[in-house]
């Protein structure tokens, strides 16, 4: 099992998920034209991590913008974490939003309500 490292693109975030560490990051902008194609390797990595006996980690999500397709993919990602937690993993999410961006805070609150994962929402 190797770490997942995706460099940030102009419209895609930097993704850093360690195979053995306790904190991962998804950071930047997230509005690829095909969000499903972008997220697929992340979801695959998470499923493999779980199958490989990974214990879970805190995933920090710090996004400036995301499009509606990515919002669906983020929900898919959170549901994947939720499934892993139901099988003994300990994933949690720290949702970081710019303090002058209430929409991004609201998005975090919606995701927190729509999933059953330890969820922390913090301004930066």
């Amino acid at each position: 099992m190797t770490d997942l490292q995706l460099q940030a693109g102009i419209n895609t975030p930097k993704v850093s998920l360690p195979s053995t560490g306790n904190e991962g990051w998804i950071e930047g902008n997230c509005y690829p034209e095909n969000a499903f194609a972008f997220f697929e390797p992340i979801l695959t990595w998470l499923r493999n991590y779980r199958a490989d006996g990974g214990k879970g980690m805190r995933i920090c999500v710090k996004l400036d913008y995301f499009n509606t397709s990515s919002s669906k993919c983020l929900l898919d990602l959170l549901q994947t974490l939720q499934d892993a937690n139901s099988e003994g993993c300990a994933f949690s999410v720290r949702w970081l939003y710019c303090e002058d961006d209430p929409d991004m805070r609201d998005n975090g609150e919606e995701f927190a309500q729509d999933t059953r994962i330890p969820f922390e929402i913090r301004p930066y």
Binding site: E33, N34, A35, F36, N67, T68, S69, S71, K72, L75, E110, D114
Partner: peptide
């Protein structure tokens, strides 16, 4: 409505999620 639609399965023939105009 948008939150509920996020839970719907993705149509693999579509690159988008069908949520843009609602948003």
């Amino acid at each position: 409505l948008i939150r509920a639609r996020r839970f719907m399965p993705h149509d693999e023939n579509e690159a988008g999620a069908g949520l843009g105009l609602l948003e």
